[in-house]
Design a protein around this nucleic acid. Structure first.
Lengths: 201, 201, 201, 201
DNA sequence: TATGAATGAGTGTTCATTCAT
DNA sequence: AATGAATGAACACTCATTCAT
């Protein structure tokens, strides 16, 4: 399907431009014309690839969701049998996330800041999405409990969301930093330390 | 100043109604008329108390900032000398925050969701604010390091932001829960467990 | 009628302040609140003395009309019997006008500039008023024709309006000049020269 | 430039409709919707051609200014050497002006009445413009003085403004008359008679 | 009588979306 | 398929006017 391919490429181009512009100016402050101008196309053309303005935000955020999913799916939640293995796994996942968003800070900013309150319906969806990510994290924790290398009384739901909350904070910091790579490493170290021993030890 | 008092009360009334409506419908989807209608006042009256639509958002968010500050300032960062004391302090602060936002989930939702991307300029301010809160948290950690009950090599900047990230996740969960009080307690337990021992032990 | 007197004084005060503000900022750009503030009164008070915003414009302009009428009525159109007498009369009238408006340039500005297009209905009235003034001027010219010291074939209607047009131009110049008195004299000289001999002789 | 041409034509159409409506109802009483309705276009279309409401007033008045300038520039101020030639020239200029405005009385009305006080900033501009026109008239008088066919002691500044004042009065009368052409001729006769001999001779 | 808080009609302007070319 | 001219719904904001105190 070459036609479909072309369409997909065009969608991607437009989505990228839109994401960049949304991240720079904010969702509501961005006009369709701004996006079109950035690409050097007529703004009517936009509507040949996306149903409306909201549609593109949804597309971009779905894309991010997929990519996030890919990073998380690169690891198998049930593959670890010891704390050490899990810790190493957490570090890999963390580095993966920071690489993903470090490479495209605009996407991260859009996903975690500019897009959040763009639209009330979307806010709801976004919060649901946080739940979905928590579920993935929860799967890792559940594996630890099942395998016995994490305590049986661990509050998995709360803990998984707490871990994601730390990651959220990390991303916010990483994308604003001049050296995202180094900052990412600091955060991986800080978060794993917290997770596997707390701050006191 | 009775006139000033009346003005302040009116501002508070309008701000409350605005916060509620923003939280329910989103900032951009809310019209000044919606806020006025909720109060049963003419929409022109709004402008006697606030300069414009953005002004009220800023007012509400500044108010939240102040209240958050009050919760944090209720404790003295340098008053603890042992891990146990600090842990108790963290629990008190946590409960305070969940009480604050549990009582007014709309405010929390506005502050952490609907308001975030309302306006690009505000997004920036919001991110700066997260830094300010992190600085407060950092003061507690610094005290621990200085007193010797937290390790000297603790990455205070990263850890303080990570803690705040957990709190953020907690608030998101608490305000969506049917029983905010119970949920809050779960979170305090979960977060302190993570902080003071990690998930593994 | 002391009450009436007080009311009249108050109306005058408000009208003066309004005229000043209209002249400074323009009719539409001036709010009732601006006028009230200038007087240090509540803006609700305004409505105790004038029906509405338009009413005050009308009042001010009627007042000017009356005063203009007084200047013109100070002379008797039928009293002159020779060109020399008429010329002297014209000079007196001219000086009177320049004194009137030179003393209150704001009134002149309001009457001839800011107020002109304030309101379509008023534009019409204003143009009619020009006709009324022309009629007064015409009476002088008619006297000259009747007495024989002005030519019988003089186009009185056109000429009277033309004379008024010169006066209009004069006022515009006089009120913008640093030394209205001197400027006024120049204009009286210029206009009478034009009238009684043309520019060529 | 066909695109540009189309744009220019559209601007002209809209400007014409606007001028007509301004002249009929007054500047402030005219809404953008009124102008659009007159043209049978959507009122959003207006903003594709003009930045805002004030912009179109400025455009129309600048256009009038240019056209007035063309009428005045059709003659060469230095080309006349005798009073007779100058008088003929004045008659030609006068007829040109009356033709210009007689053909489009709405424009004249807008320029000399409805637009004058539309906006305080514009009032200022308008008064400056009167000065500019006076300067043109002054050039003709100066030529007469230089050539010796006008007296050396003529107050050129005052006289030029006085002449323009007569023209102003003339236009006001001509555009309100049922037969503008005939009325124009009367005025040319009346004004030239005044200028070249005064009313008495 | 004076006030100023409250009001809401009115309007300029924006911009997502459509559709004829 | 691409365009951009046209559109009008939607909304923030102003301010003349009213009226309870």
């Amino acid at each position: 399907m070459p036609a479909d391919d072309l369409t997909q490429r065009r969608r991607r181009e437009i989505a990228d431009a839109a994401a960049l512009t949304f991240a720079e100016q904010g969702y509501h402050a961005t006009g369709i014309a701004d996006i079109a101008q950035r690409l050097g196309i007529g703004h009517g053309t936009f509507y040949r690839y996306f149903k409306n303005k909201r549609d593109i935000l949804e597309y971009v955020l779905d894309e991010v969701t997929v990519r996030l999913g890919e990073v998380l799916a690169a690891e198998d939640p049930t593959s670890t049998t010891t704390v050490e293995e899990y810790r190493a796994q957490v570090e890999r996942i963390g580095m993966g996330l920071f690489e993903l968003f470090g490479a495209e800070p605009a996407i991260a900013r859009l996903f975690y800041v500019e897009g959040v309150g763009a639209d009330h319906e979307f806010s709801e969806k976004w919060m649901d999405l946080q739940g979905a990510f928590a579920a993935v994290t929860a799967a890792y924790l559940q594996n630890g409990v099942d395998r016995g290398f994490l305590p049986a009384d661990l509050d998995i739901e709360v803990t998984s969301r707490a871990v994601n909350g730390m990651i959220f904070a990390a991303l916010l910091a990483v994308i604003r930093d001049d050296d995202p790579a180094a900052e990412g490493e600091r955060w991986v170290a800080g978060i794993t330390r917290m997770m596997f021993g707390g701050i006191a030890a």
